[in-house]
Write a protein that binds this DNA or RNA. Structure first.
Length: 428
DNA sequence: TCTGGGGTCCTAGGACCC
DNA sequence: TCTGGGGTCCTAGGACCC
């Protein structure tokens, strides 16, 4: 059996933890740049505030019902996420926990006797809540996909399930599948959901009755086959071992306001490159490929229905030697940015993507270029140490600029209660 | 006026090899 | 009239996830 442990309205729960007066009140959290709604408490959901809608569209409801509104505070969420995951690792053993996202983890329960599973699932829930103050839901089933089905129903029927649901008999599984619309299956997105509906396949149960060949043909080849097998109760998506290095690292941001000048674009690109390089060094890797992209502002009155982004321009380059040095990467990134920039255009977003990532102990050297990896890595280590100990960005590259008037908006940001001394929660 | 920021995996098709 | 049969590697793009 596999379990999925999922924090309830995670970002909202984090904000509430230090503002207990908000318990039972509607709360929403906004995306970067205060653009969209990305998390809602149950109370906010029942007011009809939809996931992912732009803030300015939700504003009337938010003001009418005095919904508590926060800019996203990733320092806070990251730290609380770590506490939740540590709790799970302590309870079940590190080798059985796969952190799937900031607020979710799969747990391998194949070594647990069936008779003890329900008790363990409840223990996980109560312990996480007691140790961290974050409420979670637990879904347990023979496969990962089915455990997500269980988790969804546990959350949906909180009173009946107390947020814990174990699907351990064929009958329970069948009933759960009948109550799950195809669009709510993990792995079925908007496109496939439409396709399934067109084929008159409405529930997960109906989908589970299709053949593997059908899934291969209509749901993206081997991906669809895996999904169907999982729905039918045959484990086909394995646990991921921890400490796998990312194969791609990106840092991309919307600007706080449209940017016209090459100078500002370059500052942003340099800043994002430095951040991406930091992430790279944190996993002890180096990158050989770098892509820069900038997104133009969408010309006015050219969109109908769903929001579309403006045209995106991108350029890539491959380095002679893989590196994690911010300085070397910034140099390349700025060249690319200059290539892409067109005078007279207005931009709203930029990003940097590092690729061809390998561990830094297996750098392929170039016969004709001196390798100064050691020098650079010592410098970067010093920079990282200072930035970690003091505060973010106290040491940065001049190319990043000092004014940064392209920086994103965060009008409702809460204190970083758990990661900054001077932002601790005060009790009077 | 105003719409996020990360990631993953897979497939198709082109270039190239013998 | 008639033009093989394998391979590999790479990239772009599409689908999905939270």
């Amino acid at each position: 059996m596999f379990a999925i442990v999922d924090c309830n309205s995670f970002y909202c729960s984090c904000e509430r933890l230090f503002r207990p007066a908000l318990e039972g009140q509607p709360v929403v959290v906004l995306s970067n740049n205060d653009g969209c709604i990305i998390a809602r408490s149950d109370e906010a959901k029942s007011l009809g505030i939809d996931m992912g809608i732009p803030y300015f569209m939700a504003k009337p409801l938010i003001e009418k019902y005095k919904v508590a509104t926060f800019s996203s505070n990733y320092n806070l969420y990251g730290n609380l996420s770590w506490r939740v995951m540590e709790t799970l690792r302590t309870l079940i053993g590190q080798q059985y926990v796969e952190v799937y996202s900031v607020d979710e983890a799969f747990i391998d329960l194949r070594h647990i006797p069936p008779s003890q599973i329900m008790a363990l699932a409840k223990k996980i829930k109560t312990t996480v809540e007691m140790w961290t103050g974050i409420k979670v839901s637990v879904g347990v089933a023979p496969t990962k996909v089915l455990s997500k089905v269980a988790n969804r129903l546990a959350k949906k029927h909180k009173e009946a399930t107390s947020c814990v649901l174990v699907l351990d008999t064929p009958n329970k599984i069948m009933q759960a599948l009948e109550r799950t619309p195809v669009a709510d299956i993990w792995g079925i997105g908007r496109q496939y959901a439409q396709k399934l509906l067109a084929n008159n396949i409405l529930t997960a149960h109906q989908l589970s009755k299709q053949t593997l060949m059908w899934a291969h043909k209509h749901l993206g080849g081997v991906v669809g086959v895996r999904l169907l097998r999982e729905l039918q109760g045959n484990p086909s998506i394995e646990m991921q071992t921890p400490l796998i290095c990312k194969q791609m690292i990106a840092t991309t941001r919307m600007f706080g306001k449209p940017v016209n000048s090459l100078q500002h674009i370059k500052e942003a690109v340099a800043t994002y490159t430095a951040r991406a390089a930091e992430k790279l060094r944190r996993q002890y890797s180096v990158a050989k490929a770098i892509t820069v992209f900038i997104v133009q502002q969408q010309p006015a009155n050219s969109y109908s229905g769903r929001y579309k982004h403006g045209p995106s321009l991108s350029a890539s380059t491959t380095l002679t030697i893989a590196t994690s040095s911010s300085g070397l990467l910034i140099k390349q990134a700025l060249l690319l940015a200059e290539q892409l920039y067109q005078e007279g255009s207005s931009y709203k977003k930029a990003g940097v993507i590092l690729g061809h990532i390998v561990p830094n102990d297996s750098i392929q050297c170039n016969l004709f270029v001196a390798n100064n990896h050691t020098v650079h890595s010592k410098l970067m280590q010093a920079v990282d140490n200072i930035n970690f100990a003091m505060r973010n960005d106290i040491v940065k590259f001049a190319a990043s600029g000092t004014e940064r008037n392209w920086k994103m908006q965060q009008n409702f940001i809460s204190p970083r209660y758990t990661t900054r001394w001077h932002e601790l929660c005060l009790v009077h």
